Amino acid sequence: MAAAAAAGAGPEMVRGQVFDVGPRYTNLSYIGEGAYGMVCSAYDNVNKVRVAIKKISPFEHQTYCQRTLREIKILLRFRHENIIGINDIIRAPTIEQMKDVYIVQDLMETDLYKLLKTQHLSNDHICYFLYQILRGLKYIHSANVLHRDLKPSNLLLNTTCDLKICDFGLARVADPDHDHTGFLTEYVATRWYRAPEIMLNSKGYTKSIDIWSVGCILAEMLSNRPIFPGKHYLDQLNHILGILGSPSQEDLNCIINLKARNYLLSLPHKNKVPWNRLFPNADSKALDLLDKMLTFNPHKRIEVEQALAHPYLEQYYDPSDEPIAEAPFKFDMELDDLPKEKLKELIFEETARFQPGYRS
């Protein structure tokens, strides 16, 4: 834990890192770190609560700039109880001085990944967590956004079992017609939660990839272990087919990539493993919904509104309290091709509203 900075004593240090967030945020305490930044909790002297502050230093890398800009653009436009918001952003007053960006968010005690390492969940908890994931996802999908990296560590939890989806750095506007060349190379989302079509096709992607990830998360809540822990690309596919069985001819016809289709045709026939054999203690309604989410063919996979209306979630289902976005989200430009200098300018502009004396 960093010592509390005395008023006016300059930035606090946390594990050798400068955290320049005073005077409003003090009493910093280390939480963890990701690929390009550290997260601390801090005391907000204005709202009198502890908050989470993520320090991001992305400006050396085009990919990190892209992810940072995506996350900020999306989260500043989203407003939903099951999606983490941005409360404040701290950065230098000029673009030349801006080396880091500090993002202030609600402090959540833990995440689903940490929880599943230590606790076996009751059916009631599984049901409530799944409902909140789908409630947040309904809003995301209504904005025409794909999260693309749903996994237990991106689901934040607090002691009252509130759940918030975080990390929109890989999110995209849904565009089933656009052929994202190089899709697989830039697709760094965790393999275990990846839909089979991501490994088999490169053309376009749809909201059904997020539903697949939610199915993987439900299976993990039922058993405290990942359902498809593939060691590499082909191993991942083999794990999936080992449980779902061989795809039907109709399902194979959806695979545009001939090499991928021929690979699947070359494999020995596998039978589907019954879900109640894998999860003998699970609620039968939970397994019915799991089956509809972990469907090989993305066109037959359940959609988020149908999933919310499934009998497993009937005690929570309330369409009048499951809000959607006001308007579909649009990125003005494809960020993939922009140089990091341009992305830095866009991050600077996007964060201006939090600067003292800002006038829109």
Rank of each mutant, 00 (worst) to 15 (best):
G230Q: 00
R24Q: 07
A143V: 11
Q249E: 07
I126A: 06
I90Y: 01
E12I: 13
G182D: 04
G245K: 06
V304W: 07
G16Q: 11
L264W: 01
L76A: 01
P298Q: 02
S122D: 04
S223M: 12
H147A: 07
K272H: 02
V214H: 12
L267H: 01
T63Q: 06
L134Q: 15
A171R: 09
D124T: 05
K164F: 08
N45P: 03
Y233G: 05
K272S: 05
I211F: 15
N297T: 15
F296S: 14
V14R: 09
P247N: 02
D179G: 03
D337A: 13
A195M: 01
Y205K: 13
A52H: 00
K342M: 03
H147L: 14
D100T: 01
L234C: 12
L170G: 08
L244Y: 03
L241G: 11
V304F: 13
I227W: 07
F331V: 13
A260V: 08
I126S: 10
S41L: 10
R91W: 01
Q119G: 11
S360M: 14
A52T: 11
Y131A: 02
K55A: 12
F329C: 06
A282G: 00
K272N: 15
L150C: 06
K114L: 13
R135V: 04
D332F: 01
N281I: 15
Y113H: 09
K330D: 00
Q66R: 11
A325Q: 03
D162Y: 14
F183T: 07
E250D: 13
Q249T: 04
H180R: 06
Q355L: 15
F354T: 06
R77G: 03
D235W: 02
Y316T: 01
T63G: 05
G357C: 15
T118M: 08
Y36I: 10
C127F: 14
P23V: 05
D106M: 00
A327C: 03
T160M: 08
Y358P: 09
L156M: 11
Q249K: 15
Y358S: 11
I227R: 06
L346P: 10
L287N: 08
K54G: 07
Q97R: 09
L222N: 07
K285Q: 13
Y102G: 02
K285L: 13
P226G: 04
D162W: 00
D179A: 15
S57P: 00
D321F: 05
R24H: 10
F59S: 13
R24E: 08
P196G: 09
R172E: 12
A260S: 14
E71M: 13
V14P: 13
H178E: 11
K342Q: 11
K259L: 08
H239F: 10
S213P: 07
I84Q: 03
Y43Q: 03
I84M: 02
L150W: 05
S57K: 03
K55Y: 11
A42M: 03
T94Y: 05
N82M: 11
A52Y: 02
L184M: 15
T63D: 07
E341Q: 04
H299G: 08
G230Y: 00
V173W: 05
Y263K: 09
A7W: 08
D283R: 03
R261W: 10
A189R: 10
P280V: 10
I211K: 13
L69C: 05
D179E: 13
E334F: 00
E220N: 07
Y25A: 04
S57N: 02
N144W: 08
H61A: 00
E305A: 13
G32Y: 04
T190I: 07
L234Q: 14
L237I: 06
P339M: 14
A189S: 14
I198D: 02
R277I: 15
N224M: 09
F78Y: 15
S122Y: 07
R70A: 04
V39E: 15
E81D: 15
D291S: 03
H80R: 02
Y30D: 02
T160I: 12
I74R: 09
A92K: 00
G34W: 14
D318R: 04
Q132M: 06
L146Y: 06
Q236F: 08
D177G: 04
R91T: 01
L107P: 00
R148D: 10
H299V: 13
K117I: 05
L121A: 07
A309W: 02
K48L: 12
E334S: 02
D318T: 01
L241C: 06
N281Q: 09
Q17F: 07
L115C: 04
I227V: 08
N82Y: 15
Y113A: 09
T206F: 11
D20F: 11
A352N: 08
E303N: 02
L218F: 14
V188T: 02
N262L: 08
P23Q: 01
N271P: 02
T26K: 10
R359F: 06
A2I: 00
L76G: 00
L244E: 04
G34D: 01
K203A: 11
L234P: 10
R194H: 10
L258Q: 15
D100H: 03
A42L: 02
L290C: 04
P311E: 10
S57L: 05
H147W: 08
L265I: 02
T160L: 10
Y25F: 15
S29I: 13
I90P: 00
P298G: 03
N45H: 05
A325L: 06
H178L: 15
R191S: 08
E81N: 04
I211D: 12
N123W: 08
P196S: 12
L267N: 00
I84E: 06
M13D: 10
K342E: 13
H232D: 02
T118V: 06
L294T: 05
L150E: 08
V145W: 05
K73A: 13
D44G: 07
N144I: 15
R91P: 01
C216H: 08
I211N: 15
P268K: 06
A42E: 10
P93Y: 03
I209H: 11
P280H: 15
I211G: 12
P11C: 14
R24L: 14
I255K: 07
R359Q: 08
G8P: 10
H299N: 15
S213F: 05
P274H: 12
S213G: 10
K99R: 09
E186R: 05
Y263G: 03
L116K: 03
R135C: 13
S142A: 04
L234S: 13
D321S: 04
P323H: 14
L200S: 13
L115G: 01
F183Q: 08
C166H: 05
M98R: 06
I347R: 09
R261Y: 09
E33G: 00
D124I: 04
L343F: 04
H120F: 05
L69G: 03
Q62Y: 07
S142W: 04
K151D: 01
V173P: 05
A52M: 15
K55T: 03
Y205C: 10
L343T: 07
A52K: 07
V214C: 09
P323R: 05
I347T: 05
A307W: 00
K55P: 06
H180C: 09
G37F: 11
Y316R: 02
L289R: 02
I89Y: 03
F296K: 05
D100L: 02
E197F: 10
C161H: 01
L335K: 09
K151H: 03
V101E: 15
D251C: 04
T190H: 03
E345I: 00
T181C: 10
K300I: 06
N253S: 08
S360V: 12
A4P: 00
A35L: 06
P58A: 04
G242M: 07
D175H: 04
L237E: 09
F354N: 11
F329V: 06
Y358K: 13
F78W: 08
Y358W: 12
E33K: 14
A42N: 02
G37Y: 12
A309T: 14
V39F: 11
T118F: 04
L287D: 06
Q105H: 14
V51K: 05
E109P: 02
H310K: 02
A143S: 13
C254Y: 14
R148W: 08
N45T: 11
N257T: 14
F279Y: 14
K270L: 07
E305L: 05
P323Y: 02
W192F: 12
Q62N: 07
L258W: 06
A3I: 00
D20Y: 15
A307I: 00
Y187Q: 05
E109V: 13
N257C: 08
S29P: 04
